[in-house]
Amino acid sequence: MLDILKTDKTIRWAALAFLALALSGLVIDAWILNNLMFGLARGLAVLGLLVLWRTGLISFGHALYFGIGAYTVALLDTFAGVTDLVLRLGVAVAASAAIGFLLGFILRKYRGIFFAMLSLAFSMVLYGILVKIEALGSTDGFSVSATTIFGWKPETKFPLFCAIVATAVVAIVCVQFYLRTTLGHLTTAIRDNELRVEYLGYSVAKAIHIKYVISAALTGAAGAMLATALGQVDPDSMVNWTISGELVFITIMAGPGNVVAPFIGGIVFEFLRTYAFEWAPQAWQLIVGGALLAIIFFLPRGIWSIFEKLMARIKGSQG
């Protein structure tokens, strides 16, 4: 079954690039390392949105799963003292996928703006619950204690960085495998013509449901990783609608062309925001928004299209 990926160039290049990125963690400054961790974590969520976007579905409420992932880590830490990274990630992914599975029964019936707005509504329900309930941290949230990896407590952030890079690679391999299967190819087929898919004998609702659960699981993983890297969760920085908007923002900026694009988008966004904040603390959103406008005007298929053009040029000069 996995022979689908044997000849996959994306996986090979991505593995090499991410290995180099992980090694760079040994020499780069701490603030760059932090930004890369945040960018890669967000990239996981954007990969989840990309899976939906390929079918023409945009969710304005993925902060729901981002929040579920992040709060799973925080609650496990606060109430059960769980600090192990694998356990945190595993439970967060399972919880997000489970909620995604349940809500999927409703959301799979909707398309377009209705899908987007219903997703937003669900995420704001979670936001409301978190803000109102003292036991869940209310507006202050929780701080998250430093992570351990199989009982070992790292001195630096480098091992966590490597773990995030590894998670990104695993996610890329899984999503690329999914997109290469018949089920994954239905992604474009459903966007083109739902009626034909039904008449061929496959349930469009089921295909969208599966896609939605995959997307939820990836975004849950993103939330868990970001919470661990930041060491803090609160409703405004994890579950509010602005976070959903941020994820959609990065998705558009990155482009739907490739499974690696979300991570590039995530990292670019993190640095763009850092510099924008430094240059114009009062108006950093203006710079970030301007950058998105420039990308929409000049690179309608996102940052990834730069790589596509470069590769086409290299191929052209070889030929």
Binding site: M1, T182, L183, H185, V197, L200, G201, Y202
Partner: peptide, 19 residues
């Protein structure tokens, strides 16, 4: 046609194979 055939030949596991 590949998509159409792949769905038609779906035996439960074929959806996880390449079309």
């Amino acid at each position: 046609l590949a998509i159409a055939l792949a769905i038609a030949r779906d035996d439960g596991r074929a959806m996880l194979k390449a079309p």
